[in-house]
């Protein structure tokens, strides 16, 4: 019994292994190194965005802005790196995301505005701002250093995946072993209790939103490595893609739960499902319905068991 309970902790990872074995048997293309590289490579951008989303969710903030922030960072990166090089572009993109994140955090905590609506308003406005910066066109990413970093690989393992793993370990360290990380869980679990214990909940939340936005921005910048350009539609499906990763990974919409390790597993699951749909030639429009259905199922599973006991 104890063994089973221990094993159930790793149910997501076991699902990944079983699913991979299934695809390995039934699809000849799955077992190739190229496919392996592709899966790991595609994990980085939206994996970072999902980490950001998770970071916000731990303190109970649903940062729906992340898709637009990814877009804004990518656009700023593209525009600045054209004339000042990719390091300056990277910093500018991250700074833009951080500024918007700080504004969002301050508005939903210190100014006591409805957090959901603030993120939705910014979701609309930030994308509009990014499109206005582009003036309707797209910006091509031609910086050779950036493209080289994005395509570096050690054997079949891309460099960016290693960076992702390091970020996961770092985020888990912050969440688990620092004073700030523990107070994040306290705020997400029950804000009033945390406040009476002497935690400055507004400060904790604002910092969480800023970190969340920065991670989303970094993810957005590296989406451009694959596309070769940044346009106004970048990251439009980020919420749909990342919410299931985060929730499958053990976070909850109400906050106070979740860690980076879990998000990594959720990210792997979603990428395997995408790979499955591509390898087994699921109709492209049906993929949208399936993605929506997965998100719906995740929401239902999360909320149904939480609200099982209460009547209304």
């Amino acid at each position: 019994m104890k063994v089973i309970r221990e094993l159930l902790k790793y149910k997501i990872w076991m699902f990944c292994i079983l699913f991979s074995v299934y695809m390995y048997i039934f699809s000849p293309a799955f077992g190739t190194w190229n496919n392996f590289y592709g899966i790991l490579q595609s994990m980085f951008p939206y994996g970072m965005v999902a980490l950001g989303l998770m970071f916000g969710l731990v303190t109970g903030i649903n940062n729906l802005t992340i898709g637009s922030l990814a877009c804004l960072s990518a656009v700023v990166f593209g525009l600045v790196s054209q004339s000042y090089g990719c390091i300056a572009g990277f910093l500018a993109g991250v700074a833009a995301a951080a500024v918007i994140g700080a504004a969002s955090g301050v508005m939903s905590t210190y100014l006591k505005m409805d957090g959901w609506l603030v993120t939705i308003a910014l979701m609309i406005g930030v994308r509009g701002f990014a499109c206005a910066l582009l003036a309707g066109s797209t910006v091509r990413i031609t910086d050779s250093f950036f493209l080289k970093v994005a395509s570096t690989k050690f054997g079949p393992v891309p460099l960016l995946f290693l960076v992702f793993l390091v970020t996961v370990v770092l985020v888990d360290f912050i969440l688990k072993y620092t004073h700030y990380g523990r107070s994040m869980y306290a705020v997400g679990g029950n804000a009033e209790v945390a406040a009476s214990c002497g935690i400055n909940i507004n400060k904790v939340r604002v910092i969480a939103v800023i970190v969340s936005s920065v991670l989303a921005g970094i993810g957005g910048i590296f989406v451009t490595a694959r596309l070769g350009s940044a346009n106004g539609d970048l990251g439009a499906d980020a919420i749909m893609a990342c919410l299931p990763m985060v929730i499958i990974g053990g976070a909850a919409f109400t906050g106070g739960k979740g860690d980076a390790k879990g998000t990594l597993s959720g990210c792997l699951v979603m990428n395997l499902i995408t790979t499955y749909m591509n390898l087994f030639e699921v109709y492209i429009d049906a993929q949208k319905v399936i993605q929506g259905a997965i998100l719906l199922m995740v929401i239902i599973a999360d909320k149904y068991f939480e609200n099982k006991e209460i009547k209304v």
Partner: peptide, 26 residues
Amino acid sequence: VIKSDGSDSYLITLAMSLVALGFAYI
């Protein structure tokens, strides 16, 4: 089914919008 409160409907309808978009494409 999930006895939702205000904030759940944001997510439910967001997911449903994707389903509706896919339906329209199909």
